[in-house]
Amino acid sequence: MPKQTFVLNGRTVTVDVADDVRLLWVLRDLLGVTGPKYGCGINVCKACTSHINGKAFNPCAVPVGKLKADDEVTTIEGLPGTSSGSGLHPMQRAWLENDVSQCGYCQPGQIMAAVALVKRLRREGRALRESDLDGIRNICRCGTYVRIREAIEQGAREMR
């Protein structure tokens, strides 16, 4: 069985698993990292959204064999560790202050997508627009969309 090595939430991990198994299952079923959720398995619902080297991606659509040993995968569990302060990431705090979650199932993916969006805007050197919020593809079947928009606006202000 091939050995797969990558960096997960700041630590190098090695797993024995075939190349073509999608990373989502490696995380959830083999490593017990269950923050990224399954909602479709075909890169549509975005419930599994996590970060690779600081950008949003969907591990349900990435065969684990495609990862390089120095690729940094961050799941919701590792998000607080990517911000400077102690405690939660500013986006998670914004989520709490706006009491966004209902059932909570989509929320790890929503938060990871939101953080990546704000980082992308920083790279592009522009401010958050209404159309950026419209373009977020993550599904929330509980319909928390309004509070998601408010939390992203707040989180964007507080992310440094």
């Binding site: 269950t34 399954y38 919701i76 569990e77 009491d99 979650s101 909570g104 199932y105 929320q107 790890p108």
Partner: peptide, 21 residues
């Protein structure tokens, strides 16, 4: 009042059936 399980939801710690070990 904010939800009592909000923190678990935003940290990924909230356990659904599929997350049980």
């Amino acid at each position: 009042h904010n939800r009592t399980d909000a923190r678990d939801a935003v940290t990924g710690e909230k356990k659904f059936a599929m997350d049980l070990d």
